[in-house]
Design a protein around this nucleic acid. Structure first.
Lengths: 232, 232
DNA sequence: TCTCATGCTTGACGGTTATCAATTTCACGA
DNA sequence: TCGTGAAATTGATAACCGTCAAGCATGAGA
């Protein structure tokens, strides 16, 4: 594992407060690999041998059943994924594939579990991380159960506008087909949902979005901090 | 807090391995209360002052948005709820109401966080519990995104049959209206979905279910361990 | 036993969403 | 610059699901 990757990983919440010795022990068994786009990193059902850390690029977590497939979430640098499977030593519940050329660190799951037993600060960080992820999934679940597809899109756009610094214009960070899958709809209906939002001040040009009047969009989106605020 | 409640709580996975001193410290600030049916224990958005433990009865966790409401899950003895909100010291993401007369222990959240910092076994148990819950929500999310309503019902019935010991006959543990909400559908459509399963060997008499041929039901339900097995 | 409230079921209807097919647009390499 | 293939859009259609209204079943209480 190249020294240059250490600071990035060390800077993560998860690894920030552990002792140097324990961090070094974790890194000893870890290695970094470069992957081309569209490579399947892990498959649903595989044993969880490694905790993954996305250092650059991006990774799609998805799941399939009975010939259907859906995107569950996208992981961007710097972040880990499949922490829960690592902790429980259970099979992956989602598959993962690179969306673009990506650099990914692989930390043996058994090392994570071993250091977890010894380093209280690391254990504490894992709990915090898991609780945050848990709450995010709850929010996604509420989004899906309580809202129609165009309400989900409207609220998604408001969230993206917020994370873009509140600017009236910003770019979608996904292909629309995958955005559709994330939002739980077909690409066709995403297209129609975008058209429906024209009447509420949303302009779409390719992946470039313009929200002319946030207040107007909020009146139909009705965002709730308990669904849409992913910081709490 | 009555001594008689100690063993039940102590027996929970979450509290089983912590030291006596720390457990006693937790129980010092805790108290047990009896609630009648249909009492709202907590409301979405409230600060998470207490970790709740259901000792008897049952509790519905639900969420509302824009005039709509949906059941998220049901908590039965002996189990805790809203652990993640307690850990993060964030607002509740779900409301909770008693379904029947229930006895519930309330443990101050700040005590949980304080003991967590001191007792490594407790911290470890919390991580395990959170990871398990996280994976359950992921499964529920996949269920909702990948399956139609009658597929969800068919798989729900198979899961219930399994937990009833595999018997061909068992009873639903919910009112059908709440089962419908849990499964993400209306009571009307639940009724129609049950009728649709008649053709696949499912008999319904009130809340009594008979599955004449599990294999036949499995052929249309196509259960997957990565959605339906809540033990992994 | 009767009444009444509640939950469940059924049918009719409309809205939402998925599917299929056909274009159009766009990005990228020849 | 042009050609190619994938993505995005559009329209038509059907499946799915929610809503509304009515009727039925059940059980608690007078």
């Amino acid at each position: 594992m190249p020294e240059s990757d250490y600071p990035e990983i060390r800077g993560l919440h998860l690894f920030r407060n552990m002792t140097d010795a324990h961090f070094a022990a974790l890194m000893r068994g870890a290695y970094v690999q470069n992957f081309p786009p569209q490579i399947e990193l892990i498959a649903e059902g595989d044993p969880s041998d490694f905790l993954h850390v996305v250092l650059s690029g991006s990774v799609d977590l998805f799941s399939a059943w009975n010939g259907r497939e859906t995107s569950m979430s996208t992981v961007r640098p710097i972040a880990t994924f499949i922490l829960a499977a690592t902790i429980r030593d259970g099979p992956y519940l989602m598959s993962a594939r690179t969306l673009e050329k990506s650099r990914i660190a692989l930390i043996p799951s058994q090392d994570v579990r071993a250091i977890f037993d010894e380093d209280h600060d690391f254990a504490r960080a894992i709990v915090t991380e898991l609780a945050l992820h848990f709450r995010s999934v709850i929010k996604a679940h509420k989004d899906l159960k309580l809202r129609t597809s165009s309400e989900r899109l409207a609220n998604y756009l408001l969230r993206q506008q917020t994370r873009a610094g509140g600017d009236a214009e910003f770019d979608l960070r996904f292909e629309k087909r995958r955005l559709a899958s994330l939002l739980g709809m077909t690409p066709e209906n995403l297209s129609r949902a975008f058209r429906g939002l024209h009447a509420h001040g949303v302009r779409v040009d390719g992946s470039h979005i313009t929200i002319s009047d946030r207040g107007r969009l909020e009146r139909i989106a009705r965002p709730s901090p308990f669904i849409d605020d992913h910081t709490i």
